[in-house]
Design a protein around this nucleic acid. Structure first.
Lengths: 196, 196
DNA sequence: CGACGATACGGAACACTGTTCCGCTTTGCA
DNA sequence: TGCAAAGCGGAACAGTGTTCCGTATCGTCG
């Protein structure tokens, strides 16, 4: 079980209570700072907000990406779990896919700069990219297959490519009122439908 | 005329011949380094390749973005000028739009990391974003209007939004064989067509 | 042809990142 | 209560883009 826990990125809680307290404080501080300053906020700001030294942050979260993952894990999991539910409750698989993508887009767009970090080539941020992909691509594949079997989808687009494209479309959607990522994603999903 | 030249980002060539030589060397070096190391290559690498000091680079190109603009100006201009030509030579406005977007995507995808820099919020890179937008959005607007008048377009999508979306879709298209930006852009363009 | 002022150069230095390291403190158990 | 182990803080490192200024070069003018 430990192996699977670790592969999911989760770690056993620290033994000492000061360590537990600091880890909590860091997660809270990071969440708060991400909201106000975006996901790119300097590590030092987070440490300061948590009232903690830099060493502490890096012991609990070996890299910046790990902290981001820890902060958003629950929401990503919730999104992943909503996939099958939507498939069961929607009129058609294509509708389920569209709703699920909406969920994902809403999540990304409300986290300043997250979409940008998600695809950035910065070494160390691979972990973040990988986590999102590992968690969400299987769900998307499932939805995509259902829609394909129902002949509601035109191409043999990979779930990975779709997720990647949607993620990219969300970049900079905050911080630019002239750009509405939701609309473009809807267009992309519309483009998936087969021509009559 | 000087005013309009400046507003287009062009600057009068330096008076002294060593200055002219260095500017040329910098442009050549930058182009070469961008090809091998991507558009994010450190400024120091470019200066070294040009056999020039850091001060020199910043005198000729006040910011990183200005250097990138200077390197790609000709290609961006060519792309902009291809718009009206395509409109004249294509069967339908929608086809012209699709071909023009293809041109743009080809350009972006072959410049490692350019699409990413284009939307990045780094202060100083605004100039780059602005240059692309100013140069290409009018052309895109023109194509979009033609297609709209021919009833080949579904929504009232802004040219800005479309360019932005296409640019975003191209991010990371190099450096990831699993992701084919061209296909996603085609899907997006397909999504523009009106439903029957 | 020889000053000499304007122009341009080089690279050290600054500000800001993420990350590492290590001496010191705190904790929880024996 | 003592004391190893676990954890902590923040100085220090490495790598960015950018600024600054003493020095070298250029082109002109006498």
């Amino acid at each position: 079980m430990n192996a699977s826990d670790d592969s999911a990125g989760r770690t056993a809680p620290p033994k000492r209570k000061d360590a537990r307290r600091n880890k909590e404080a860091l997660l809270d501080a990071a969440a708060a700072v991400f909201v106000t300053s975006g996901v790119d906020a300097p590590v030092r700001d987070i440490a300061a907000k948590a009232g903690v030294g830099l060493g502490t942050i890096y012991r609990h979260f070996p890299t910046r990406a790990d902290l981001i993952i820890a902060v958003y894990r629950h929401q990503v999991d919730a999104c992943a779990e909503a996939g099958p539910a939507l498939l069961a409750s929607s009129a058609t698989p294509h509708a389920a896919l569209a709703q699920w993508i909406d969920l994902f887009v809403d999540f990304l767009v409300t986290k300043h700069g997250l979409a940008a970090v998600l695809q950035s080539d910065n070494p160390g941020c691979d972990a973040l990219h990988t986590y999102f992909i590992d968690r969400l691509v299987p769900v998307c594949t499932h939805l995509l297959e259902a829609a394909t079997e129902a002949d509601e989808i035109r191409t043999d687009l990979t779930a990975y490519e779709l997720m990647r494209g949607v993620g990219n479309l969300c970049i900079g959607a905050d911080s630019d009122p002239r750009y509405d990522a939701r609309r473009l994603v809807q267009l992309l999903i519309a483009g998936l439908r087969p021509p009559h």
